[in-house]
Design a binder for these strands. Structure first.
Lengths: 241, 241
DNA sequence: AACCTATAAAGTGTCGACAATCTAGAAAAG
DNA sequence: CTTTTCTAGATTGTCGACACTTTATAGGTT
């Protein structure tokens, strides 16, 4: 038997299971299954590497196998599931290599996002970024000394930057694809980066560069920021290994 | 009625419809539908922006609606289709903006691919790249003067470089996602880049940098290469506009 | 005891049918 | 004649059932 039977999966859209806001009524059952399962995978309630039985899951969510399969396939193309023909689906397993690969791709894409954001210099994006940074600053002061960003803070930052790039393809690739994998690693390997103050200053400088319209600098800073985070993880991994 | 009834779509896996080699037997009907439809969309036999009727398509391919829907959903997450709940699917339409966005994302990702390829410096990758470049050189001499790369040549190059990056996530993102959109634009807006000799020299220099293990230079050259192609297109578009 | 074979169970792939929803066109009101 | 409402047709979403493949189990053979 592949999965622990008493891991309590999310009720179907009982809580807001990461479902897009304001579209609650107009989504199919397969959609809701997709959102719930995505959350369960990201947050580790479906263990990485575990096999998935379609009939069992369908029963558990009280849905037909067809609708469930639709959700599973969307999860597959999200890169959260792997399916083999006539064999079935399993949750992807988290590997050191996969995590590092993720960092390299993010470095490239988020660097570009910064460059584009700086070229646009949208006023509303800038105020939002500033407000967010201010909130994070207060939080940091609150948790002084020992403090580090809770991962979600760092996440907000990267998310907002990408939005400001105004490139729909870039936004989709990062926010609707890669970030779920990022969060999966964070949740399950539980790596709260201990580089709090530095990260905050880096974020601040990046926003400065964007505000100044200096795309090249913004890109360089973001890439350095991500690469620093990567080295940090890499060190930790080779130690534990 | 949305689609011209006598546009001859590909027979199901009659020709090798872009199906992965060596796996002909072990693929589901939905897989074959997916490959065929992907080819039809990329090559414009299903016009960009046209609506898709599930029953009609299912009849045409002699498959059940369920299997077809599975293929459609995979096409959606490839970004080749857009689906609205209770309304249906339509082929994405090609916009100037979308094309330019594609270039920016490619610049970021393929630049990184070059950097990684240079860091690896795999011997086999290098001989393959050299051989390919040699083939292209001969073709170019053949078609002298008027000559330009047929798009496929340029495509081979970028494809191979990405493979040499040895980053599975990067490879998947580019080769299994973005490149189909690239080819869709090329087929349908029919833009054979007229910058032949220059492109060839640029390719050559990029490979040199990779061979020298100079990741930073390789990245810069690739990004410049792609940005040049982008400006070229941009100029053409604003003229015709 | 180890290994191969055959049978049974479970799981996936595919299909056709029904229910809910949207769309287009006709009928009615202004 | 224009606009609104309602009805009929078509399309999508969902489901349960069947066929085929894979996997696990039991039995026999060397």
């Amino acid at each position: 038997m592949a999965m622990d039977s008493n891991t309590a999966l999310t009720q179907l859209a009982a809580d807001g299971a990461d479902t897009p806001k304001g579209t609650r009524g107009s989504q199919s059952l397969a959609d809701r299954l997709f959102y719930s399962l995505r959350k369960d995978i990201v947050e580790g309630r479906m263990p990485a590497g575990s096999k998935i039985s379609e009939p069992e899951l369908a029963r558990r969510f009280d849905a037909s196998r067809g609708s469930l399969r639709e959700a599973l396939m969307r999860l597959e193309s999200l890169g959260l599931l792997e399916r083999k023909v006539n064999v079935g689906a399993r949750v992807v397993d988290l590997t050191e290599r996969g995590l590092l690969e993720l960092y390299d791709v993010r470095e490239a894409l988020e660097g570009m996002a910064c460059r584009l954001a700086a070229q646009n210099r949208s006023e509303e994006d800038l105020v939002e970024l500033r407000q967010m940074l201010h909130r994070h600053e207060q939080q940091e002061e609150l948790q002084a000394g020992t403090a580090y960003f809770q991962p979600e803070g760092d996440f907000d930052f990267h998310f907002r930057i990408v939005q400001a790039s105004n490139n729909d393809l870039l936004i989709d690739t990062l926010c609707n694809r890669l970030y779920y994998r990022v969060r999966m690693y964070r949740y399950q390997l539980g790596m709260a980066s201990p580089r709090a103050h530095r990260a905050f200053r880096e974020h601040s400088h990046i926003i400065d560069a964007i505000e100044a319209g200096d795309g090249e600098l913004a890109e360089i800073l973001m890439r350095r920021h991500i690469r620093a985070s990567r080295s940090n993880i890499e060190k930790k991994l080779t130690n534990t290994d």
